[in-house]
Simulated scan of single mutants.
Amino acid sequence: MDIWLQLEQAERGERRPLEAVLAAIPWNADGLITAIAQQHDSGEVLMLAWMNREALLETLTTERVCYWSRSRQTLWRKGESSGHRQRLIEARLDCDGDALLLQIDQQGPACHTGRPNCFYNAIRDDSVEVISAPL
C-alpha cells in the first residue's frame, strides 16, 4: 500500500518511519518541494520557498531552517547574511506529500524587502495594493 494512503487511513498517533516517507515524497523534476513558512504562534503565513532533500534533512537536524535557492543553485540558510533566522518548531507534510508547512519562530522580518512577510501585495478589485511597509 502507498505510504500516503497508509497515512490517510491511519489513526491519530500512528507513526511511519521518516526515511520511508522521505523516499515517497514526489519531488519535482529539480528534486524540490514547496515549503510554506508560517509563524507558529500567530499563524501568519510568512513566505514560500523551495527545499531539496538535503535542505529538509538539515532543517530537521539543526532546527534552523534551510532552503534551496533556485537562483543561486545552492543551500540557503535563512538569515545567514541578514540575521533574520527561522527556528523550526514543527514540520508538516500535506496529505499527498507534495508540500511542506514549516511552523517556525521568525527572528526579524521574513521578506528580503524588510517587510514582516512576503505577501504584502494584495489583489483588490482591479489593482494591486501594497499593504505593509518595511520594518
Rank of each mutant, 00 (worst) to 15 (best):
L88H: 09
S127E: 09
A49T: 08
N28R: 09
R12G: 07
A110G: 09
L5G: 02
A24Q: 00
E11I: 00
S42V: 13
Y120R: 01
A20C: 05
I89E: 03
V128E: 05
R53A: 13
F119R: 02
L101Q: 11
L32Q: 05
W50R: 14
V21P: 07
L32A: 06
G43K: 09
G108I: 12
R15F: 08
R70S: 14
N52T: 01
H84E: 13
W68K: 10
A20Q: 14
E80V: 04
L22Q: 05
L100M: 14
V130Q: 11
I36M: 12
L56I: 01
L102R: 02
H112Y: 08
I89C: 03
M47E: 04
P116H: 02
E90Y: 05
W4Q: 09
V130I: 15
Y120S: 10
D96G: 15
I3H: 01
L46C: 05
A99V: 09
W27C: 05
A37S: 13
P26F: 04
T61S: 15
W50Y: 14
N28Y: 10
E44S: 01
R72A: 11
C118N: 03
W68F: 14
D94P: 15
P134N: 01
Q73D: 12
A20L: 13
E80H: 11
L5A: 09
L93N: 11
D96V: 10
Q86D: 04
N28A: 06
L7R: 08
V45L: 13
A122N: 00
R87W: 10
R12I: 03
I33H: 03
D2V: 00
L101V: 05
I33D: 00
L22D: 04
A122W: 04
T62H: 13
W4I: 12
G31W: 00
P109R: 02
V128K: 08
A110V: 08
D126H: 13
R15T: 12
E80C: 02
Q9A: 15
P116M: 11
H112D: 08
I33S: 08
L7C: 11
S82E: 05
Q38D: 01
E14T: 04
W27A: 05
S81C: 00
R85Q: 13
E44L: 09
L32W: 07
L101K: 08
C118P: 10
Q103S: 10
A23N: 10
I89P: 00
A122F: 10
Q106I: 13
G43I: 09
S42L: 02
S132I: 07
A49Q: 01
V65F: 09
L101F: 08
E8I: 06
R12N: 02
D96W: 08
C118D: 01
L18F: 14
A29G: 11
L135S: 12
L22G: 13
V128R: 04
L60T: 05
S132K: 07
C111E: 06
Q39Y: 00
G108N: 11
M47Y: 11
T74G: 09
W50V: 04
I33Q: 00
N52A: 12
R115W: 04
E63K: 15
H84K: 02
